[in-house]
């Protein structure tokens, strides 16, 4: 499983390669496929750069009269995007950090120690991650209403309508996947390492925090990238758990742009792209981690 991460990022290019017709055909096919894959996004970019006056008269399938970034500025302002980005990050970052922290603790426990419920625990976490989210919505909402929290955390006095509530359900749900992946990874760490530390008198917590976690950095990085995308893209939890429009994360706030009273598809396209921007940036910057994360759960065994 670790192999995927440590593998050189690009195959070594051999110099003696010659272009054969088969290769050319392969490239042509791949280029075409890539273009088709990117087409919807490019189309959205094209639409976002045009004005409402232009497209309402000429239709979308026409040569643009002029290209402008005005839609982006307008979406940014009308959608109050900075505010909603902040909301999203207030949810995403704590949820991400705590998910990784909690699941690494469980993974450490189940992979480095043997106890009665070892496997059961791991199975519960893994299965929990695979449940359809809708299954738990109603009881969760009721449960949240019963749990009292101080008002400085949530103005409602309960977990309803609070960012904490959304963070908690992300942690609970996502820790399943992370525990599974991390425990697989930790099993590959030679146990002599922790044994040596133990002989030196290191506590369990030290073995976890100072020994195991640093070794897990590649997998933590991969999971962080992946979880960032997943939590960022969440649509359902905020829809169900948040009541205050001002607390909505940016993906749900996108609906505001698609208001019931004026539809401007160019504006929506610009807004959509702006909302997608953070995940696209993360994707481009941390591409290797992202790929690593996706393949982590799969290539073991």
């Amino acid at each position: 499983m670790t192999a995927t991460l440590e593998r050189p990022s690009a195959p070594v290019v051999s110099k003696k390669r010659t272009i054969t017709p088969a290769r050319a055909a392969l490239h042509a096919f791949l280029i075409l496929t890539c273009l088709m894959t990117l087409a919807p996004l490019l189309w959205a970019v094209y639409a976002s750069l045009r004005t409402y006056e232009d497209t309402s008269v000429n239709g979308y399938f026409s040569v643009a009269k002029s290209l402008t970034l005005a839609n982006f500025a307008k979406a940014w302002e009308i959608g109050d995007l900075p505010h909603f980005y902040l909301n999203t990050f207030l949810i995403t970052v704590p949820a991400l950090v705590l998910t990784l922290l909690l699941s690494s603790m469980v993974a450490f426990g189940v992979s480095r120690f043997s106890f009665k419920l070892n496997l059961v625990l791991l199975m519960i976490f893994t299965a929990g991650n695979l449940l359809p989210q809708q299954v738990i919505v109603t009881p969760l909402w009721r449960l949240y209403r019963l749990i009292e929290v101080p008002e400085w955390i949530s103005a409602s006095g309960s977990l309803i309508d609070s960012q904490l509530g959304v963070i908690l359900i992300h942690i609970a749900f996502q820790s399943g996947f992370c525990t599974f992946v991390l425990s697989n990874y930790m099993k590959t760490i030679p146990y002599e390492l922790t044994e040596a530390a133990r002989v030196d008198g290191a506590s369990v917590f030290r073995q976890y925090w100072q020994l195991t976690l640093p070794l897990c950095r590649p997998v933590l990085a991969a999971l962080a990238t992946l979880e960032f995308t997943w939590i960022y893209n969440d649509f359902l939890w905020a829809l169900v758990l948040i009541q205050d429009g001002d607390k909505m994360p940016v993906t749900s706030a996108l609906q505001n742009l698609k208001g019931t009273f004026f539809t401007d598809n160019n504006l929506i396209a610009a807004g959509s792209l702006l909302v997608a921007l953070p995940t696209l940036v993360v994707f481009f910057v941390l591409q290797r981690q992202f790929v690593g994360g996706l393949t982590l759960g799969s290539t073991k065994g």
Binding site: M105, G109, I124, G128, I136, T138, P139, L143
Partner: peptide, 23 residues
Amino acid sequence: LAIMLGIPTIVHLLFVWIPTLGS
């Protein structure tokens, strides 16, 4: 160790599995 395993397990059970049973 019990705390390290217990807290995440409680969070997970409380917010995922108990609501599932509730449903």
